[in-house]
Every structure is written in structure tokens, then in C-alpha cells.
């Protein structure tokens, strides 16, 4: 469903010259599964997911979503995905209903199906009580629900959540995770990035541990634990990251 091969991305930086955000990342995600990307801040998670959502273009490598290439067929890719991240806010001067309706229309849904779909979504996500509340007046939890509704209004086969729970309180985060888990039940292909171990452990079917633009380890939770002989994900995570830092530092000092 999602195939990422040797994806690279670098930025121009005045002081350091080329700054590598992704150094050849590869992974696959399949329908009915939640693929977790776990990594500290600055690991490159957002960059990968922004490339998948076609907002950024990679410098090298390929990525395809549902058979469409993210570089050459961006508009087809965007029809296949629902993208939600900490950076995708809701409009202040639009009500919840208007916001979801607007995106539904941008996805090309016709009036009747869109209406039915929205009624269904608003009931399922318990959003009916703030249907006509402007974005500026919503609480964080309400905004998060609107974002979810906005991302899935066109019933896309692929969903991408980038640090979707950051800044949410426990209750709202829990509700969001529940919605994500439900999407898996509906057979969607879900990519979920986070820096919180618990979320990855509880939610994800496969986990990729990412650091400094590289995937250090990848597999189901059990596979990872077995391979590295470490039952605790947190310990595993720190070991991998420290080890990687040491290698990079060594390379750096050799140069």
C-alpha cells in the first residue's frame, strides 16, 4: 500500500551547507495495519510523512501510495490519503461543519453522499454538539476531532497521522487513539508517527525506530524485542539511539 525506498531529503543550511534530514529511508505499510514511526524530535518523522503527503518533494529515492508515485502523481496521491499532523490546524473562522464540508468538496464528493457521510462521521466522533461552533472558539479536543473528521471525510484507503497526539491531554489523546484503532478495523493502511513509547507499544502493529534521518530497526514489537534481546521498548529505544550516535560521532571525528 505504501512503499518507501531509499528516500533522501536534504535542506540547504547557511552554516552547515547541506543538512541531511533523511538519509535513505525504506519501509512498507500494508492495509489493516498501523505502521508506527517512533523517534525523538528531529529524527525526520515529519519529513517522511510530509513527503508521503506530497507537501515536500524528496531529493532522492521513491515513495508510492496505493500505486501512485508521490513525486510525479502528487494530486492522485492526495486523493488516496488523509493527512493529519500537529501542523495541520483548523480554520479559525469556520464552523466544524463548514470545515469538514469544505474538504469533502475539495476531495470531489457530491452533495448527497457528502451529507450522508458527514452525518455519519459527526455522530461517530460525537461532534454534533459543536457543529456550528467556530474554530477559534473550540477546545483542543474539539479541534482534534474536526481534524480527524476532515482527514477521513473522503474515506481514504491510507491515513497518515504525524504526532497527532502531541499537546493533547490524556482523555483527548485516548479518544484519538481509539479512532485510529477503529480505522485499522475498517481495513485502512495507517501510518502513525510519535515520540511516545506507550502509544507505539499499544497501537502499532509494526514499529520503525527512527533517528537522525535513518531507520535503526523495524519490525513488530515482538520481533524487535527478540532481535535485540530487550523486553522493554524504552530501553531498546535508548540503546539503539545511543549506539547510532556513537557511530555517527566516530565517523565525524574520523573526517
Amino acid at each position: 500500500m505504501i512503499h518507501v525506498r531509499q528516500l533522501t531529503k536534504h535542506y540547504d543550511d547557511l552554516t552547515r551547507g547541506k543538512c541531511i534530514a533523511l538519509g535513505g529511508v525504506s519501509f512498507d505499510a500494508i492495509p489493516g495495519q498501523i505502521y508506527g514511526i517512533l523517534g525523538p524530535n528531529g529524527a525526520g518523522k515529519t519529513t517522511v510523512l510530509r513527503i508521503l503527503s506530497t507537501v515536500l518533494r524528496p531529493n532522492g529515492g521513491t515513495a508510492s501510495v496505493n500505486g501512485y508515485d508521490v513525486v510525479t502523481q502528487p494530486s492522485l496521491v492526495r486523493h488516496q490519503i488523509g493527512f493529519m499532523s500537529a501542523n495541520t490546524a483548523v480554520y479559525d473562522r469556520m464552523t466544524a461543519w463548514e470545515m469538514v464540508e469544505y474538504f469533502g468538496r475539495l476531495y470531489g464528493l457530491q452533495d448527497e453522499p457528502l451529507r450522508g457521510r458527514m452525518e455519519n462521521l459527526f455522530t461517530r466522533l460525537q461532534m454534533n454538539e459543536f457543529r456550528d461552533v467556530l474554530g477559534a472558539k473550540m477546545s483542543t479536543g474539539m479541534k482534534q476531532k474536526v481534524s480527524v473528521a476532515r482527514a477521513i471525510v473522503h474515506d481514504p484507503p491510507v491515513l497518515i497521522f504525524d504526532e497527532a497526539t502531541s499537546g493533547l491531554d490524556v482523555l483527548v489523546a485516548r479518544a484519538l487513539l481509539k479512532s485510529v484503532a477503529e480505522l485499522r478495523e475498517h481495513g485502512k493502511c495507517v501510518v502513525f508517527s510519535t515520540h511516545i513509547m506507550r502509544e507505539a507499544e499499544k497501537l502499532c502493529d509494526r514499529i520503525a525506530i527512527m533517528h537522525r534521518g535513518h531507520i535503526l530497526a523495524e519490525g513488530t514489537l515482538e520481533e524487535l524485542c527478540d532481535r535485540h534481546e530487550e523486553r522493554d521498548l524504552e530501553e531498546l529505544f535508548f540503546r539503539l539511539i545511543l549506539h547510532h550516535d556513537e557511530i555517527l560521532d566516530l565517523e565525524g571525528s574520523r573526517q
Binding site: 503527503s53 506530497t54 507537501v55 494530486s75 492526495r78 486523493h79 490519503i81 493527512f83 499532523s85 501542523n87 495541520t88 490546524a89 483548523v90 480554520y91 479559525d92 474538504f103 475539495l106 476531495y107 470531489g108 481534524s147 476532515r150
Partner: peptide
């Protein structure tokens, strides 16, 4: 500034 541009960019609108 309000973070809605990325929402729009990830929609199918060219």
C-alpha cells in the same frame, strides 16, 4: 502562522 496552510496543501487542491 495559524497552521492551516499545510492542511490545505495536503488536500487534493493543486
Amino acid at each position: 502562522e495559524r497552521g492551516t496552510l499545510e492542511t490545505l496543501l495536503s488536500s487534493p487542491a493543486e
